Amino acid sequence: MNHEQDRTAGPSNQESTSPEPGPYEEGKRAGAHPLAVVIGIIFGLWLLMWLYIPSSKQKPAVAPEPTPASVMEEPDAAPVMFTVKTSIPEINAVGIVVPPQATESQIVGLLKRLRDARLANQLSAMLPATSPGHKLGDHAIANIYIFSDAQYARPAAIGVLARGAHAPGELYPQAVPFETAMEEVRGHYRIDLNDTGHPDQASLGFADESGVHSKTFRQLF
């Protein structure tokens, strides 16, 4: 009887002592599949980009700056006649008047004639001195304003243009509005011989130093 009990107990003891299968077995892959890892990384990067990089709808709209149209000078156009209306040496300014029918091409030609005269040291034959006694000459610093309406070629309007768009209006309550005077400028020629890199600047229309400009503004040189 004892032998039979020993034989019957043997198999149960062997079963209880056999090792149970663990999480890592030979021939089986441990951890996530590599393809799943790659997909997870790609999804994570996409999510970060979506959260932190603003879309085109979120970016503020920036208005494109207007590109000045080129003005062709007519070689056969007759030189426009002009009259010096105002000279203000205190602010290095001159106001000249051209006929209302003067074309843009003629204004361009006049501005180039003034520059050529300045380069040839002959500007004094055309305009009064704007910087008398200056060591660099009588037109070392000049702002030459071209108008067709003579009432704006006067100290009141030219003074407003010289002060610029951002001058406090309450200091000059009787002055011509800057916007009004600016739109009346047919052409503007600035000379500054202290600016050796760019001593001559000219334009159709007018723009002050802050960039506020008239509707007809076209930079020439």
Rank of each mutant, 00 (worst) to 15 (best):
V71A: 09
M72R: 14
M72C: 12
M72W: 14
M72I: 15
M72F: 15
M72H: 14
E73M: 15
E73K: 15
E74T: 15
E74C: 13
P75C: 01
P79M: 06
F82A: 08
T83I: 14
V84N: 01
I88N: 05
E90G: 07
E90R: 10
I91R: 03
N92L: 01
N92P: 06
A93K: 02
V94L: 01
G95N: 01
I96G: 00
I96C: 03
V97W: 11
V98M: 04
P99K: 06
P99Q: 12
P100T: 10
Q101V: 13
Q101R: 12
T103F: 08
E104H: 11
Q106G: 04
I107H: 01
I107A: 06
I107D: 04
V108W: 02
G109F: 01
L110S: 06
L111F: 08
K112M: 02
R115N: 02
D116N: 10
D116H: 05
R118T: 04
L119F: 06
N121I: 07
Q122S: 13
Q122L: 08
L123K: 00
L123D: 03
L123H: 03
S124D: 12
S124C: 03
A125F: 02
M126E: 11
P128V: 05
A129P: 03
S131F: 03
K135A: 15
K135V: 15
G137A: 01
G137I: 03
D138H: 09
H139G: 03
H139M: 01
H139K: 03
I141A: 14
I141W: 09
A142C: 07
N143L: 10
I144T: 04
I144R: 05
I146R: 11
F147D: 04
F147M: 09
D149F: 14
D149C: 12
A150Q: 13
Q151H: 13
Q151L: 14
P155C: 03
A156P: 11
A157E: 08
A157W: 11
I158L: 10
G159L: 12
V160H: 09
A162C: 12
R163C: 11
H166K: 14
A167W: 15
A167T: 15
P168S: 06
P168K: 05
G169V: 15
Y172K: 15
V176E: 12
V176K: 12
P177T: 02
F178E: 08
T180P: 10
A181I: 07
A181S: 11
M182Y: 12
M182H: 11
E184H: 12
V185S: 00
V185H: 02
R186I: 09
R186D: 08
G187P: 08
H188V: 04
Y189C: 09
R190T: 13
I191A: 10
I191Q: 07
L193H: 02
N194G: 15
N194L: 14
G197S: 01
G197H: 03
G197P: 07
H198R: 12
H198W: 11
P199F: 08
D200P: 02
Q201E: 14
S203I: 05
S203A: 13
L204Y: 07
G205A: 07
F206K: 04
F206P: 05
